[in-house]
Simulated scan of single mutants.
Amino acid sequence: MSTRTLISPAQLARPRGRILYWVVFAVVVGGFTLAFLGPLYWMVSSGFKDTQEVIQTPPTLVPGSFAPENYSRAWEVMDLATLLFNTLYYALGALAFQLVLDVAAAYSLSKLRPVLGKAVLGMMLATLMIPATVLVVPQYLTVLDVPIFERNLLNSPWVIWLPSVTNAFNIFLLKRFFDSIPKELLDAASIDGASPTRILWSIVLPVSRPILGVVSIFAVVGVWKDFLWPMLTLPDPTAQTLNVGIYSLSAGVPVNVLIAALTIASVPTLLLFLVFQRNIMGGLTAGGLKG
């Protein structure tokens, strides 16, 4: 069965069709590259400019004054080491809670088949239709005075970790992948005497590394890029995340130093994507086929 394309092989074999194809291809690829990498280049290059060059109009494409000390100054003035440590601590904690609780929830819905499991999954997915900003006030009142325990979680890591666990999208991704694991494989382990917990630990988790990698990346990036919730719940400067700390200290900092700090804050997540981009795409499509 021949592959259907926008341009037929006969048209592509003609000189005019080949030229038109490569021109359109170059324009589309160049346009998308400029749209995605242009702001990134502007941010990195502006960190090397002096204050006057950053704010001048029209902006310069190549820095006329090369000042790499802006990055070291941003690191010291904004205490980025502490902010990076705080953010990494919150992100790894959220990752641990999500891997434990979200995997347990997805495994229960997929393989243990509880009563009203489909209704529970449907209600979980329905929460994705609610804008996140609508939930800010109820969540804030909850962490301000946790029911039953009567604890104030402000300025504690729990105020970041606990809300991040309730991630319906990650539970759905995990459940979809678990559904693709052959039932015969689990039945064979059950016949050999393995308990549901042993099956999860010895069979399901080892073959679920792609989707676990995707969920891990989503968990880390979700905490790393969040701004509104940490700003409301972490007023203590020593406990703030990277984004909130940079915002709090940006008042008396020159623009070029501020842009350098934002560049440093963007590097970890960019490296995370570049290193694991194949795992991200593989994990998202791995549960699409049975077997």
Rank of each mutant, 00 (worst) to 15 (best):
L173M: 14
P68C: 02
K175H: 12
V136E: 05
D79G: 12
E184C: 04
L121N: 08
A132H: 04
W75N: 06
P157E: 02
N152M: 00
P196I: 03
V143N: 00
K118P: 09
I191D: 11
V115R: 15
V77E: 08
R73E: 13
F177Y: 14
N86E: 04
F177W: 15
A106D: 08
T133Y: 02
S180T: 09
R176T: 15
V159I: 11
P196C: 07
A74W: 06
I171S: 10
L101V: 14
R73F: 03
N86A: 07
S195D: 12
I203N: 00
G122K: 07
A189V: 14
I160C: 01
F149T: 05
L135T: 14
V77P: 00
L154A: 00
A126C: 04
T197K: 09
S110M: 04
M129S: 02
Q98M: 11
E150H: 15
W158H: 05
L185M: 13
A94R: 07
G193T: 01
S164W: 06
I160R: 10
R73S: 14
M78A: 03
T133G: 06
T87H: 08
A189S: 13
L200P: 01
E184V: 08
L144P: 01
L162F: 11
M78L: 09
A126Y: 09
L125F: 00
V143I: 15
D79W: 05
M78E: 03
L162I: 15
L153C: 08
L135M: 03
S180I: 04
L128D: 03
D187K: 13
I130T: 05
R198E: 08
I191M: 11
S156A: 03
V134S: 13
K118E: 15
I181Y: 06
N152S: 00
M78R: 08
V136K: 09
K118Y: 12
Y107T: 03
M129Q: 02
M123K: 11
S202A: 15
N70M: 05
Y140C: 12
L109P: 00
M124D: 02
T133H: 09
N70V: 05
A67N: 13
L116P: 10
E76W: 15
A168N: 02
N170D: 10
W75Y: 07
S202P: 05
F169D: 04
A67F: 10
V120W: 15
V115Q: 14
A81M: 06
A67Y: 12
K175R: 15
A91D: 06
V77T: 13
V77I: 08
G193V: 02
P196M: 02
R198V: 07
P196A: 04
Q98V: 06
L174Q: 03
S164H: 12
M124P: 00
L116N: 13
L83M: 11
R113H: 11
W158T: 08
N86K: 06
A168K: 03
I148T: 10
V159E: 00
E76V: 11
A106C: 01
L144N: 01
M123I: 15
V146S: 00
R151W: 11
L112P: 09
L88A: 15
F97L: 14
A104Q: 10
K183P: 06
